[in-house]
Design a binder for these strands. Structure first.
Lengths: 114, 114
DNA sequence: CCAGACTGTAACGGACCCGAAACAACCAGA
DNA sequence: TCTGGTTGTTTCGGGTCCGTTACAGTCTGG
C-alpha cells in the first residue's frame, strides 16, 4: 500500500497541517514533543526515558522535560516500574489519544484534498 | 488526485518525518517557523510581515523573530520594498530551497514506504 | 553487604520565544 | 506641510527549552 507524493504535494501537505497546528488554540507542541508522543502511541510498551532518548538521538533530560510539559497537559503519564524501581514507564492517556486522533484527522483530510 | 491515508498511516508518516527532523544535525525549526518558510515558498510573492502574521493567526513580532532566526540560518532574506518603504519583502534563498527540497524528499520517501 | 553501574531527575547558564506595548520609519490625504 | 494611520521592529517581563553536569534512588554481582 504505497503512497506516491510529488514534491509540491509533500510540502503542501506539511504546510497545511502545520498551519492547522499553529492556528489551533492549544499550545503548540514542538517537533520533539510530537515525536515522543507518537512513539509512545505507535510503538509497543513499555517505554522508558532511556529508550526514548536513544530512539530520538537526544539526551535524557530532553525526554524528562518533554514528559514534564506533556504531563501537565495530560497527554502522557508516568509511573514507576515495580519490577525495577529505577525505571519510569511512560503511559498513554485519554487526552493524548484524542490529541493524536485529531492530528490524524487533520493529516488525513489534507491528504485527501491534495 | 486524492490521497487516502488511514489514521495509523497518517500518524506513522508524521512520526517518521518528525523523527528524521529531530535526528538531523541542523537545528530544529519550530512548527511556526516551518509554516512560515513553506508559505513563502509555496505561495506567490510578495510576502510581507503583515500578510504572514494574518495567514498564521499570530502577532507581527512572532514573524519578525522567526525571520531573524531563519535569516541567520540563511533560509530566507529580507529587503525593503522600494515602492512602499514601510514594507519588508521576504524572499527565498538557495539554502531555504534546498532545505525544503530535502524535507519534501523525506516526506515523499516515508509516504512511499507506508 | 556493599561498591559500582544503572536508572531518572535537578541545577545551571545561555539561548530562544511569547504577547503586549511602545517605538521609529514611512505614506497619503486634507 | 503636517497629521493620522500604516508599516516593521524593539523592548519588557516571564516562560520554556537546550546540553552539560551533578545528583539521588535503585539494582546486582562479588
Amino acid at each position: 500500500m504505497s503512497v506516491a507524493l510529488s514534491t509540491a504535494q509533500s510540502l503542501t501537505l506539511w504546510h497545511d497541517v502545520a498551519l492547522a497546528m499553529v492556528r489551533d488554540d492549544e499550545p503548540d507542541l514542538s517537533v520533539r514533543q510530537v515525536c515522543i508522543l507518537l512513539t509512545i502511541y505507535l510503538e509497543a510498551p513499555p517505554h522508558t526515558v532511556r529508550d526514548l532518548a536513544k530512539k530520538l538521538g537526544v539526551t535524557k533530560p530532553v525526554i524528562t522535560r518533554a514528559l514534564d510539559t506533556m504531563g501537565k497537559l495530560e497527554l502522557v503519564s508516568r509511573r514507576r516500574d515495580d519490577k525495577d524501581r529505577r525505571n519510569v514507564l511512560i503511559q498513554r492517556t485519554v487526552k493524548g489519544a484524542l490529541y493524536l486522533e485529531r492530528l490524524a484527522d487533520t493529516i488525513g483530510n489534507h491528504a485527501k484534498r491534495l
